[in-house]
């Protein structure tokens, strides 16, 4: 479904991505793991066209034009849930969810809203509360829920577990599996390699801008280097 070939990203003179290639097939959960500063977020931001890149990004075997503005990427059916609980603090929870469906005009928006709220019942109790007043964990849930409202074919998640209690992480990961079962392909960026490898079909390990290890989750989890550096 998604195919990335020789992706380079530069921040000024810093080469943040050094020509990485990977792919995600329809229906899969693929995880991208790596240490701080490895270039994981950069990869997702390049796919979403939030930053300029060199290389080729293909969606459903068609090249995505590199000059497409970021909001058009959403229309291609990609939902990107950015790092760090980026929700709209000045909007209510309900409005946040409605913005998730901003580009949609199908009839099923309300139905989806119900569905999403049944996945995250905590949000249901707080529909009219301002996003900024939610707790950190609730904000992360809102971010994921808002991404679900986009009804995308491909979901890019950037560290959904960051800073959350283990219980909550489990909850969110369970929900990711559910979302995936319902037909959404997932590219998951994580530092929490244990959990990510558990739910993923395949994995890539990124180190200072290059992919150094790849394979099925099982293979990667058994890799000595991975064990040492990421699974501890």
């Amino acid at each position: 479904m998604l195919e990335v070939n020789n992706l380079y990203v530069y921040y000024g003179v810093i080469e943040a991505l050094k020509g990485i290639s990977f792919n995600v097939a329809e229906g899969e959960i693929v995880t991208l793991i790596g240490a701080n500063g490895a270039g994981k977020s950069t990869t997702l931001r390049a796919i979403s066209h939030l930053i300029p890149y060199k290389g080729q990004i293909k969606l459903n075997n068609e090249e995505v034009r590199p000059d497409l503005p970021p909001h058009k990427i959403t229309k291609l059916g990609i939902a990107h849930i950015p790092e760090g609980r980026i929700i709209f603090g000045n909007l209510t929870v309900k409005e946040n969810l409605e913005l998730g469906a901003y580009t949609r005009n199908d009839k099923k928006i309300n139905e989806d809203m119900e569905k999403v709220l049944s996945v995250f019942p905590r949000l249901k109790e707080r529909l009219s509360q301002l996003g900024g007043t939610l707790s950190g964990g609730e904000q992360q849930m809102l971010a994921v829920a808002r991404g679900m409202m986009q009804n995308a074919n491909l979901m890019l998640l950037d560290e959904p577990s960051m800073g959350l209690a283990p219980m909550l992480v489990q909850e969110i990961f369970d929900n990711l599996v559910k979302i995936n079962k319902a037909g959404t392909t997932i590219l998951l960026v994580e530092q929490n390699a244990n959990m990510a490898l558990e739910i993923a079909d395949r994995a890539y390990v990124l180190e200072t801008g290059s992919i150094i290890i790849q394979g099925t989750s099982k293979e990667v989890a058994e890799n000595e280097r991975v064990k040492e550096a990421y699974l501890g």
Binding site: H71, T74, A79
Partner: peptide, 8 residues
């Protein structure tokens, strides 16, 4: 940036 990601 987040607005962009909503397709705005």
């Amino acid at each position: 940036e987040a607005a962009y990601l909503m397709g705005i």
